[in-house]
Nucleic acid binder design. Structure first.
Lengths: 109, 109
DNA sequence: TTATTGCCATAGGTAGACTATGTCAATTGT
DNA sequence: ACAATTGACATAGTCTACCTATGGCAATAA
């Protein structure tokens, strides 16, 4: 099954939502989770994910802490901040608004 | 009512669909039509529209012809090619596939 | 006659996702 | 014991494509 690119602008939304759902995850888990919950359609490349997480740290949407995984490897664990939770709400409503609009355009006969 | 940016990658889809619907339009009409049929949510900036139309000409999705509007002004009229029609089908199915995937991710509790 | 609207166009900025590459440690395979 | 694989993070550089800002020019309106 072929996988698609993440539409620019939606990666924050996907990451924020995933963290809201699971609480605390490291980067690798975030990527896998998005891939799974999208039924393998969305593939988050590492070269997209880690820069995005850095930007989100700077924006104050998440905090990070180094830890150790179940498999005994070091990993950076991310958690939503209050600002991140707020941002998620904004991203969701924007997504719905815009996607609804596009759908209206392409569904009209 | 606030308007939103066009999500990168969807402008071609919107233009192609609009041309498929109305046949022959000039740029200004395309922009206005998208704005209207999206209930004023999507605003296509001229600085986005005309470069996009140029790219679509190069890709062979549309042809252009100079003419005169009802208001007696010169305008460039665009029409879909067969390749453009094919491309529209691709864009629509990609859009549905990816948007469905994102919706699955953000709707899961 | 000046302002506004219709219509096209381009230059330059910017965001953000991609590919390619690298590191380093733990596990698995031989 | 050593090699290969996997897990996990990171960055540099490229590219697409949308934006803002700007400009021109002709037709109509004030």
């Amino acid at each position: 099954m072929q996988r698609d690119e993440i539409p620019p602008g939606t990666l924050y939304l996907l990451i924020l939502k995933t963290l809201a759902r699971y609480g605390v995850l490291h980067g690798y888990e975030i990527a896998n989770s998005i891939q799974q919950s999208s039924d393998e359609v969305l593939q988050v490349e590492e070269g997209s994910l880690y820069p995005a997480l850095q930007r989100m740290l700077i924006k104050g949407w998440v905090t990070a802490e180094w830890g150790v995984t179940a498999g005994n490897r070091r990993a950076r664990y991310y958690k939503l901040t209050a600002a991140g939770r707020k941002r998620l709400a904004v991203e969701v409503s924007q997504f719905e608004r815009v996607m609804g609009a596009i759908t209206r355009v392409i569904q009209t006969t």
